[in-house]
Every structure is written in structure tokens, then in C-alpha cells.
Simulated assay, not measured.
Amino acid sequence: MSRSWCIKSALSRRKVLQHGMAGVGLVLLSPISWANEVWQQLDAVQHLLNGETPITQGLTLDLPHVSEDGSAVPLGIKFDGELADNDYLTDIHLFATGNPQPEIATFRLGELSRYPEISTRVRLNETQHVVAVANTYQGQTFAVSQEVRITVSGCLMRGEDSQPEPLSNPRVSVNQQVAAGDALEVRTLINHPMETGLREGSDGEPLPRHIIEHFTVRLGDEVAFEAQLYQSISANPYLRFHLTPQQSGKLIFEWQDDQGEKAQHTSELSVS
């Protein structure tokens, strides 16, 4: 990421400090701890919550306390709370409080992905909090946040200008046999620069934005898992998630970038 990412972050921090100083009296009178509920500091999260107070138990983030490489920070999200038998998570949203664009990814879940444990790698340009918000089919909302200390800022990590062809060599690891209703682990990886539009090339000119925006998994004609990705996802996007298939069929994996280009991979699945 380029110097402009750093500059925008510095300006954002200055605005936060100015806002905080102006509202000191209000903070002292408020019973809410903004340090503990950092999702209240992001407009994108507030818009998602729409005035609701989320449940703070059940949703868990798995992040390193310290990362030496801000361009590829491992991130895991899982849900181990209690829900009614006919309830399940429908979507999980990830945000980074200190990145120029706070959105990291949105995962859409359904009947075939009721085992919510997802892993990926993300870009974080400075020490900051990562926030996760999840919604359920019956309308419950859960939220969690965790701080990550970044040793080498993601905005200082320069990528190579010469990289493999975007959307080439999609790799999928999945067992071809599974018992009905059991959690089936799926791991995917694909070549792509995930250029943010903020990084400079070797000639000093900004490299154009070029990211994978959508990832979809279908079992036959039914959508099993979806992900909307943003520029905070690391280069060569990696995703690990689970499916809970009930019948055999063809798994179709599809990646689509912001230039309309697509890649596809298929796997035959046998459910006993």
C-alpha cells in the first residue's frame, strides 16, 4: 500500500482526536465504555446495527496479538453461542477500524453452511481493532472486537509489480466424501494481486485498483456460501470455511473481480 494510505490514516486519527476532545464532557457522563465497544466508533457498523445493541458473547475473533506483517494478518471468526434449533447465522461482517476503507469482508451463510467458522488473511496498515458483526435468521445480532498490534505497517509492505496472472490457478481442498449433516472443511486459494488503488508501482505512479469482489460456492443450483471481498483482503485471497451438505452433487466455486473477469473450479461431492 502506498504513502497515501498512511496519510489518510493519519488524517483520520487527527479527526478522531479532535472529535474526542470536543466531546470529553459527554464521554465522562456516559455509562458506555467506548474503549470496550469500539464498533460504536465506525459509521459502517452503526449503519449495520441500525440502533440495535448487539450481544457480546458467542462470536469469537482469532487474531494474533502482534503481527510483524501488516499485509497478511491471519484472521479467524467463529460462533459458539447458543441459538434456537431453527435459527442460524445468515451473515458475518468484518471491519478494520484503522484502514482507509473499514470493510474487510461480508460472508453470507445459509442452510448449507450452518457451521460458522471462517479463516482468511487481511491487510492492516496500523495497530487497530478488528470488529465482527453477525446476524441470525431470527433477528439476533452479535458483535466482538479485538486489537491487533502491527509491527510493520501494511501500508509499507510493497508488492511485486510482476505477479502471476490474476484469477489463475484456483486451488480447492475438500474431501469428496462426507456423511450427511457433518461439517465439511473447504480451503480455497487463488492468484490475484488485490491491488487497493493506493499502492505505487516502480515508476512512482499509482497502480489501478484491481480486486476480487465476489466469491460464490454452489452445490448444484443452490448457493452454499458467499463472500463479498474488499481491498483489505490480502493478495492471493485465502478462504477456509465449512459446509454441511445433505446430498451429493457438484460443488461449483466461482471468483469474480472488479473488471468482470471470472474463474471457476468444480468438485464432485459424495454424501452418504
Rank of each mutant, 00 (worst) to 15 (best):
T53M: 07
Y88R: 14
V73K: 01
G76E: 03
K78Y: 09
A84Y: 09
T60M: 05
N86H: 12
L83S: 06
D87G: 03
T53N: 07
I77R: 03
Q57A: 09
L42F: 10
D69R: 03
P54D: 01
G70Q: 01
D62K: 15
I92W: 11
K78E: 01
G58C: 05
Y88S: 10
L61E: 06
G70M: 01
D87I: 03
L48A: 08
L63S: 04
L89C: 05
L42P: 13
T56D: 02
L94D: 09
L42V: 15
D80M: 02
N86A: 06
S71P: 00
D91N: 06
P54R: 11
N50E: 10
L89K: 07
S71K: 00
L63A: 02
T90L: 02
L83I: 03
Q57H: 15
L83F: 11
A84F: 08
N50P: 01
A72Q: 11
L63F: 07
L75R: 04
D87M: 08
D69W: 00
Q46W: 06
E52L: 05
I92D: 06
P74R: 14
T60Y: 13
Y88A: 09
S67P: 02
L83N: 08
H65I: 04
V45P: 04
E68R: 15
V73Y: 00
Q46V: 14
A72M: 08
D69H: 08
L49A: 07
E82S: 12
G76H: 04
G51S: 05
V66M: 01
D87Q: 12
K78T: 02
N50L: 05
L48K: 15
A44K: 14
V66Y: 05
I55W: 03
L94A: 06
L75S: 07
E68K: 15
L63K: 04
P74F: 11
L61G: 05
N50S: 14
G58N: 09
I77W: 03
P54T: 13
T53K: 15
V73N: 00
V73W: 00
T53S: 11
I77A: 07
E68A: 12
N50Q: 12
E68Y: 12
E82D: 11
D87S: 04
T90A: 03
L75K: 04
T53R: 15
A72T: 04
N50T: 12
P54A: 02
D91A: 10
V45K: 03
P74N: 09
P54K: 13
D87L: 06
N86V: 03
L89H: 11
S71A: 13
T60N: 10
F79T: 10
A84M: 07
A44V: 15
L83D: 07
G76K: 02
I92N: 08
T53L: 10
T53G: 04
I55G: 00
L59G: 07
Q57N: 13
P74A: 05
P74S: 08
L49P: 10
D43W: 10
D85H: 13
P74Q: 05
E82A: 11
P64Q: 01
D43F: 09
N86P: 03
E82Y: 08
Y88H: 13
P64M: 00
D85A: 15
D43N: 06
L83P: 13
D69L: 01
T56K: 04
A72E: 08
A84T: 11
L63I: 12
L42D: 09
I55M: 07
